[in-house]
Design a protein around this nucleic acid. Structure first.
Lengths: 345, 345
DNA sequence: TAGGGTCCTGAAAACGTTTACACTAAAAAC
DNA sequence: GTTTTTAGTGTAAACGTTTTCAGGACCCTA
């Protein structure tokens, strides 16, 4: 019926239509109880017939605003399905709050990270959710120093106290390796990730702890780490398979490494799980479709995203609140890629 | 050294520091050649020492601005890896242009789609990239009628002429089915998607065209479509396998259907490709890691995203430009899931 | 009738930009 | 030596909000 106005309605046009001042319209919009019921009705009618929607840009310029916030999200790799879950968790909550999410994917590139942080700052986002590049991420530290609301995911910052939401990496790794051990594997390798991020070390620690607990030797030649990408998975798996005494099982530190490792294992025609077992950190929704279905450590990305944005809202409300550190448990998704030991399952 | 200013620098503070008016500072920032070289230098120095970054909110309020745009992206399902590629294509170009991307994932929910479109409108985005919910998407049509810059991906709108960037669905489907036929398969089923979107029909058309070309019968009991989700893939595959005369090959219409289909095929213990061949629309970066590696129709999502944002920039520059319709070819990624015919490959 | 509430509303400043316009001083033209 | 041009700069309005402040109308009390 309506829907063909040239200019979008503004406070001014609504005010004129209702025969009141813009202040009154604003008050109605914000539910100020002071306005007289009659005028309120008149204004509401004008708002409806004008098809008015507040201009969030003007609102944000005037003052960072209560409802309908703008959230900045900065992540290192949108191709990682884990981060997709995180995004969905954030988005679900953002949706119910009428918030919008500005997304920056920096692809492990610090310059890109810096630029996105600057853009988001200059867009006056109400708060940031960031997976810092590493533990000494200067850009994120600056952000916090400048009193922006920031929640970190995956890892914290060495020099700052911030809200953090992350998985229990050590325990997750421990569970995975313990699972292998309980199935009878003894010679277990670990393909590790980028050594500059704390996550990597936590996962190594879990691996080592499991071996220790069961009195298995920790063999340095079986721990190999380079980068966290597909190619490293391929190369490091080749190295392991070429060992005079190759491992019986591999624990990979993230999904891309897992994929690379599988690629090489298939290429060599090595049978999973009969000739080699594999368990990966990071579950993917299609992990069950791999053949054999992949046993994996599931990070609850959706949950992590959800908690992160909750914390962020609280941080925006109360900047002085002490920092919270939320650790989300992982879950071992047992499938077929590690084999069976008689008596288990 | 610097980095501890309470308030971010504004035109005003820079102007005061440089001893000029804010207009002059603005002119320097926008490269107006009218300013005297000396003052220009002084202002630039002040800008640097103040660590000034323009406030994009104020810029956008004042007038939609030339560099550093804000792009609204509305997609139906962020879990679909195809859209991740699209996002990356958009993002790459946005990054080099200093643009930011506001993302709305509506999860096939029209209400959510509507809300995100409203939010983006009210954030005064410079333009929209949208995968419409279906061919008669009223919200998107309204947007275009209101003279917003809009580029559609995946499908157009029946009642509007817009810029569209999409894959050649019919040809992609044709190639996939032709591949099966050339490998000697005759009884080929098609698991189709949501029948309310044009894409689905284009893919069916390609399937039918291939059968026709090779004088194979088109058997309605072998074409089954319900929704475009995982569960449909499972259920429809079960139906097909339960047929008195089950198909020798299946062509699935998207990645979720493929995954569901694989799930059921594995569950039944049917061997791929010996007992059944499968080719899917939508390639995924991990499709080669499936066992056997999946033969799939690859949509160039990255390319689609890139072309979409290019068109969008051009549309913003010139709202009157006639609408363009860009069709991107697909690519058949031949792997192992369709088997080999003696003499091929 | 004067004084003081209470109730409701409007005027105006502010947020940080861009930009049309006005203005000054010096240079050029006559 | 006056007038006109030109170069360079500043003033102020505008974008659409929120919010403080002031003030008008009304009612109550003395």
């Amino acid at each position: 019926m309506s829907s063909s106005q040239k200019q979008p309605a503004s406070l001014k046009s609504v005010a004129k239509m209702a025969g009141v001042s813009i202040a009154t319209v604003s008050r109605v919009l914000n539910g100020d109880p002071v306005v007289k019921p009659e005028t309120k009705l008149a204004v509401e009618k004008a708002i409806k017939t004008a098809g008015y929607h507040p201009n969030r840009v003007a609102q944000r310029l005037r003052s960072s605003y209560k409802s309908g916030r703008l959230i900045g999200l900065v992540i290192p790799d949108i191709r990682n399905p884990y981060y997709i879950d995180v995004i969905r968790g954030i988005e679900e909550s953002a949706y119910t709050n009428g918030s919008a999410v500005l997304i920056g994917n920096f692809s492990q590139d610090p310059d890109k990270e810096k630029m996105y942080i600057n853009i988001l700052k200059s867009e006056s986002v109400d708060g940031f959710i960031i997976a810092p590049h590493h533990g000494h991420d200067k850009y994120v530290e600056d952000l916090i120093e400048q009193h922006h609301a920031v929640v970190c995911i995956d890892r914290g910052l060495a020099n700052c106290s911030t809200d953090i939401v992350k998985s229990d990496n050590e325990r997750g790794a421990f569970n995975a390796v313990e699972h292998l051990i309980k199935l009878g594997h003894k010679r277990i390798a670990h393909i590790s990730g980028n050594l500059s991020i704390p996550t990597t070390h936590e996962r190594i620690a879990g691996y080592v702890a499991a071996l220790r607990k069961y009195n298995l030797p920790v063999d340095d030649t079986l721990i190999r780490g380079r980068a966290s990408d597909f190619q490293s998975g391929i190369d490091l798996t080749a190295e392991l398979l070429d060992l005079p005494e190759p491992p019986e099982a591999i624990f990979t530190a993230n999904n891309l490494l897992t994929l690379g490792s599988l690629e090489k294992i298939h290429e060599r025609g090595v049978k999973i799980p009969d000739e080699i077992a594999i368990v990966g950190f990071d579950d993917m929704y299609w992990a069950a479709s791999l053949n054999p279905a992949l046993t994996a450590v599931r990070q609850h990305g959706f949950e992590i995203g959800k908690r992160a944005i909750e914390l962020l809202y609280q941080r925006i409300e109360d900047p002085a609140r002490p920092a919270a550190n939320v650790i989300i448990n992982t879950e071992l998704m047992v499938r077929r890629s590690c084999g069976f030991k008689p008596g288990t399952l």
